[in-house]
Simulated scan of single mutants.
Amino acid sequence: MKKYQTVAEKIKERIIAGQYKPQSLLPNQSELAKEFGVSKITIKNALDRLAHEGLVYKKSGMGTCVLGIAPMLGRHDSSVDSISGLTAQQGSEHVSSKVIKFDVAFPSEDICQKLNLKSNDPVYKIIRLRLLDNEPFILEHTYMPVGLVPNLSKDVLEHSIYSYIHHELGIRFGGAYRKIHAAKPDEYDLKYLGAAQDTPILEVEQILWTVNGSNIEYSRARNLYDARSYTVVEIND
């Protein structure tokens, strides 16, 4: 984890434990920076992350107020606009991956359109089962341009693709477009997620782009209807 993520997790643990009670103010950023031995920028990023999760509320001139754990928030839920990836969200000690398919091919017309590619630009075709604490959690169908993500390997796929992209390739994400909808189970869901023929599936379609504006990923992440939800926190500034 990055420093701000570590700090955010420690503050989150205190909120969950009741050390920081709902409606109370957190120590100011200078005090937190001194306690954790980090910069005020790191503290700001940590508090931004917690605000993004709906655990605290930052208001200019007021400080950072603890909201507590939202009663509707599940342990494995994710913010609808998070681009940190499953490993960063849940922790590498909890997440593992099983590679089901890993090929290089020329893209279909649909994938060309979604990734802004030419028909002779090769792409990776990846299917991975993401396991949480060794239990099937999410089934990912992913396409990435080979030209943008060179030297992708099975070893990388078994860990974190996003970590490889950020730390090995030095690529930063600019943002993502997502569509979330219900779907019927397919053959992969039946085999790898343990779905029955009538089990509803929640699917998140995503196009992810870099800070340079290049589309780097088109993916479909599928989970059983009751395994995970996606949340939105709205703040009235």
Rank of each mutant, 00 (worst) to 15 (best):
Ala105Ser: 00
Ser92Tyr: 01
Asp81Phe: 14
Lys101Glu: 13
Val95Lys: 06
Ser82Ile: 09
Ser108Phe: 02
Val80Ser: 07
Gly91Leu: 05
Asp121Pro: 00
Ala88Met: 05
Ser78Thr: 13
Asp110His: 10
Ser82Asn: 13
Pro107Asn: 10
Gln113Asn: 05
Phe106Asp: 12
Ser79Trp: 02
Leu115Tyr: 07
His76Trp: 12
Asp77Arg: 05
Ser92Glu: 04
Val104Met: 06
Leu86Val: 03
Asp121Gly: 02
Ser96Val: 02
Gly91Asp: 04
Phe106Tyr: 11
Ser84Ala: 14
Ile100Phe: 03
Ala105Asp: 13
Gln113His: 07
Ser108Gln: 10
Phe102Cys: 00
Ile83Ala: 05
Asp77Phe: 07
Leu115Asn: 04
Asp103Glu: 12
Gln89Glu: 14
Asn116Ile: 09
Ile100Gly: 01
Ile100His: 10
Asp77Thr: 09
Ser119Glu: 10
His94Gly: 03
Ser97Lys: 12
Cys112Gln: 15
Glu93Arg: 06
Gln89Ser: 08
Asn120Met: 02
Leu86Arg: 02
Asp121Tyr: 07
Ser82Gln: 01
Val104Leu: 02
Val104Ile: 09
His94Trp: 04
Ser92Arg: 09
Phe102Lys: 01
Ser119Ala: 15
Asp103Leu: 11
Ile100Tyr: 01
Ser82Asp: 13
Gln89Met: 14
Gln90Pro: 04
Ser108Asn: 09
Ser96Cys: 12
Ile100Arg: 00
Asn116Lys: 13
Ala105Gln: 07
Val104Asn: 05
Tyr124Asn: 03
Tyr124Gln: 11
Ser92His: 03
Cys112Ile: 13
Phe102Gln: 09
Asp103Ser: 03
Lys125Cys: 09
Asp110Ala: 14
Val99Gly: 00
Ile100Lys: 02
Lys118Leu: 15
Pro122Lys: 08
Asp110Cys: 10
Val95Ala: 08
Val95Cys: 14
Val123Phe: 05
Val80Pro: 08
Val123Cys: 00
Gly85Ala: 11
Asp77Glu: 02
Pro122Tyr: 06
Asp110Gly: 02
Asp103Gly: 08
Lys98Trp: 06
Ser92Leu: 11
Ile111Asn: 04
Val95Gln: 01
Ser119His: 15
Val99Asn: 03
Thr87Phe: 13
Val123Met: 01
Glu109Phe: 09
Gln113Val: 02
Ser97Met: 12
Ser92Lys: 01
Ser78Asn: 01
Phe106Met: 10
Val95Tyr: 01
Ser82Cys: 08
Ser78Asp: 07
Lys101Val: 07
Ser96Tyr: 08
His76Pro: 04
Ile83Gly: 02
His76Asp: 03
Lys118Ala: 15
Ile83Thr: 11
Ser92Phe: 06
Phe102Arg: 04
Lys125Ile: 15
Val123Ser: 05
Thr87Leu: 09
Val99His: 01
Phe102Asn: 03
Asp121Met: 13
Ile83Phe: 07
Ser79Glu: 11
Lys118Arg: 15
Gln90Glu: 11
Val123Ile: 15
Phe106Lys: 11
Gly85Ser: 01
Ser97Ile: 03
Thr87Ser: 05
Lys114Pro: 04
Asn120Ser: 14
Phe106Arg: 00
Ser84Asp: 15
Val80Asn: 03
Leu115Ser: 06
Asp77Lys: 04
His76Gly: 04
Lys98Pro: 03
Val99Glu: 08
Ala105Asn: 11
